[in-house]
Design a protein around this nucleic acid. Structure first.
Lengths: 243, 243
DNA sequence: ACCCGGTTCCAACAAAAGTTAAGGACGCGT
DNA sequence: ACGCGTCCTTAACTTTTGTTGGAACCGGGT
């Protein structure tokens, strides 16, 4: 994948949540990006490491997670092409969580140094990226609510719909069908339940004719029931630059 | 409380996590702040509202929370004097959660407009505030892990220690004794459990001689056991400006 | 002193989720 | 085609957590 296409994906996504000036677009197009390929299930940055670059997902799915003393892992967010999952490392240099690939991924790295310079030069871009990190934060808030208050079937439905709404924006939803390349083990880690309970919940949703999950693919069977179960309100995604 | 004292508290806290230039301190000291008093258990900004100011806690405890369709509420964070819990509203104008007081509180309001101007004038301050929102975000990540992966007693211990570490910084910890002005109902909402289960957990920790919780006050009985149970690693608070 | 409302506390029972264990499906490499 | 490993699937059993309902406690107001 040419690094131009990567930049285009980023700009497309940023446009969604912020208004961008033309000269700022040029700045982003001129950003030096070094591209690297990662296999599936591989760490990109680890908890405790000091980051010197931010990484832009050109292709593939990634997750952020934290592992606690007893070895249990919690998935904090799922990331898709066009996103910069570790933008926070720009000012919080030592990582407090892991970033790793789910599928084979193409990542574009931009050094903190060039990003800092860019911000000094164009405050508009700084604000745009700041806003991006704030949306990230809003998504964490919703994730807390999901894990803390919803029964397991609703949790699963909610994570699915959030992912779908974000995939839709980059043209990756085909009718009632989209990619969610997690194993049941990983779904458990995202929802705060065990893998066998994740399996139970998936089975239940299938038996009730709501949604089908099969080898990393979601197929919605009954959109009405699906939405009702998920209790999803997209406001927290802040997908429109309403100032 | 004079608004000078409020500014001092803010500066003291910001110093902890960022290096501040002298001229930036002057800028903050010159910030126009309008002070208002709120009774306990009162909404400051509500989910869905459009904010025009950010609020600095001069005195009192506040929480951020979200309420879902079935009426259940999840507490997302607890806030103490010197913090700006809704800094995110600067760029995410329509609130995606509630901010409300726990105790009677004195709040200082700073308009978005003057903050935006300040940022254009001194990028150093902008970065400092940006970093502040990123730490906020890091705390949400840890909160997800807490609610998602730790057994209820560990959850409670973890929230208690996080609060204590933050209170310590503003000189509000007296030995093994500090304020945590939540009812058991609210503790349940913070941990993602019911009030009666919160009660069970509190009782258990008391019986095991680990920690005592009584009318909004925490007394540590066995620091060793307390820490071990909480599985607390303060890195995520990013309390030192290690660049 | 009294009452009142909100907490706190507790017990008995129900439901949800974790644990353990084991068989089956599938993809991959040889 | 075969074996191997990973994931999926399920069942039986245990533990944790939720639900319901009620009693005791406490502080503030009259």
């Amino acid at each position: 994948m040419p690094s131009d296409a990567i930049r285009a994906a980023l700009i497309k996504r940023l446009r969604l949540s912020s208004a961008i000036a033309d000269e700022d677009i040029k700045e982003i197009e001129a950003l030096p990006i070094s591209v690297r390929h990662y296999p599936a299930e591989t760490a990109v940055v680890r908890d405790g490491e000091r980051a010197t670059d931010c990484c832009l997902i050109a292709d593939g799915f990634c997750v952020r997670s934290k592992t606690i003393a007893n070895g249990k892992r919690q998935i904090l967010s799922i990331h898709i092409p066009g996103e910069i999952p570790d933008l926070m490392s720009l000012f919080l240099h030592v990582m407090d969580h892991d970033l790793s690939t789910l599928t084979p991924s193409t990542l574009g790295f931009i050094s903190h140094e060039t990003l800092q310079k860019l911000h000094r030069r164009s405050p508009g871009i700084a604000e745009m990226f700041w806003r991006d990190t704030l949306i990230d934060s809003a998504m964490f808030r919703e994730w807390i609510v999901n894990v803390g208050q919803r029964p397991a079937p609703a949790r699963l439905a909610h994570v699915m719909i959030e992912l779908r709404e974000r995939l839709r924006v980059i043209g990756r939803v085909d009718g009632g069908n989209f990619e969610m390349p997690l194993t049941q083990e990983q779904i458990g880690e995202a929802l705060g339940i065990t893998a066998v309970h994740a399996n139970r919940v998936i089975r239940q949703l299938r038996q009730e004719g709501i949604v089908e999950f099969n080898r990393g693919r979601v197929t919605v069977l009954d959109e009405r029931k699906f939405q009702e179960l998920a209790d999803f309100d997209n406001r927290y995604l802040h997908q429109s630059p309403t100032l």
